[in-house]
Simulated assay, not measured.
Amino acid sequence: MSAMELLSLLDELTLEVMHSLEKLLRESRFHRVVGKGASGDKTLAFDKAVEEKILSRITREYPDATVISEEVGVIGSGGPPFFVIDPVDGSANAERGVPFYACSIAVSSSRQLSGVQLAVIRDLTRGTLYHAVAGFGAYRDGVKISTRNHGGSSLYFSVYLVSRRSRYARMLNPQVGASIRAFGSIALELAMLAEGRIDVVADLRGVARPVDIAAGSLIVREAGGIVVDTRGQLLDAPLDPTCRLSFIAAKATHYLRRLKKVLGVQALPDDVTHSTQRVEFGT
């Protein structure tokens, strides 16, 4: 199956997920906690139902694939392709009726974040589809996007901190001079950064999971942005639901330079680049 055929499949699948979730959220029984996922977080019934729908379709179309998901963990043969799934990123928002949550699916050629070659993020409230294929750019509903779009008059950051009394919080608020938000769906925030609506998305708690950012990090990079760790190194991590990390995503390196003194991020080179390899996804 080619990359375009796979994109078509994931477009269709995530649209089905959106319609299914809309119905599930109307029923109180799907708001119950039904256990803990592989990542250690609580699993709500609607999370589980959506994941099962995605797994059923992917394992039918790709019987030899390995699936890495927030709830079920790792299943499959152990070889490529690797599907990295966050069925409902922003479950707390979905549970409370806050319209900001998404379905995130990435496809990787390896068990590393750097191996992600294709990504889709479906906004599950508006229906917007963001996607990227390594080396071919990033798109919103089929229209190419760039981090250079939608520049505002002031900085606009989404930052997740341990607490407002943390060292980062004390340093960040008075010094950066930015509007600071945390919307509750890292995947969707990264997608919005890719189209230039948010300047920086950072999770500094050391608890973000690769499944949260696998799709979003590729979309950001293909739109011209950058994703680094707190040392200023290009972000890479094992695609493991139990892995935890901190990261900073930005529209361009000069936004990182604004942060480096505040957050202790090392200076970056003048030109930070990433390499991508165009691949075909076999059945």
Rank of each mutant, 00 (worst) to 15 (best):
L6P: 05
L7F: 05
L9A: 10
D11K: 03
E12T: 08
L13E: 02
T14L: 13
L15N: 09
E16T: 09
H19E: 14
S20W: 03
S20Y: 11
E22H: 09
E22G: 05
L25N: 02
S28K: 14
H31W: 01
V34D: 14
G37Y: 06
G40N: 13
F46S: 03
D47N: 08
A49M: 02
E52G: 01
I54D: 07
R57V: 04
R57N: 03
R57S: 11
R57K: 04
I58P: 14
E61H: 00
P63V: 00
D64G: 05
D64W: 08
A65K: 10
V67Y: 04
S69M: 08
I75Q: 14
I75S: 13
G76H: 13
P80I: 08
F82Y: 15
F82E: 00
I85P: 15
P87I: 01
V88N: 11
D89S: 04
S91T: 14
A92I: 06
N93G: 10
G97T: 02
G97V: 02
V98K: 01
F100I: 01
Y101E: 00
S104N: 02
V107Y: 09
S109C: 12
R111T: 12
Q112A: 14
L118H: 03
V120Q: 03
R122W: 13
L124G: 15
G127M: 00
T128R: 03
F136L: 13
F136G: 01
G137A: 03
A138I: 07
Y139V: 05
D141T: 05
G142F: 04
T147H: 00
G151Y: 09
G152N: 11
S153R: 13
L155W: 15
S158P: 02
S158R: 12
S158W: 02
V159I: 14
V159M: 04
V159H: 00
Y160C: 10
Y160W: 11
R167G: 14
Y168K: 01
R170Y: 05
M171F: 00
V176D: 02
G177C: 11
I180P: 07
R181T: 06
F183K: 07
F183C: 02
G184C: 06
I186W: 03
A187G: 14
L188A: 08
A191R: 04
E195Y: 03
E195M: 09
D199V: 01
V200S: 15
V200W: 12
V200E: 10
L204D: 02
G206C: 12
G206L: 10
V207D: 10
P210F: 08
A214Y: 02
G216T: 00
V220C: 02
G224S: 12
V227Q: 07
V227S: 08
G232A: 12
Q233K: 15
L234N: 01
L235S: 10
D236W: 14
A237N: 08
T242C: 02
S246W: 00
S246F: 04
A249Y: 07
K251E: 03
K251N: 06
Y255T: 01
L259T: 06
K261V: 07
K261F: 11
V262H: 00
L263P: 12
G264F: 03
V265I: 13
A267W: 09
A267D: 15
A267C: 13
P269F: 08
P269D: 10
D270Q: 04
D270T: 05
T273P: 05
H274Y: 13
H274F: 10
S275D: 12
S275W: 05
S275R: 06
S275H: 12
T276Y: 14
R278D: 02
E280V: 07
G282M: 10
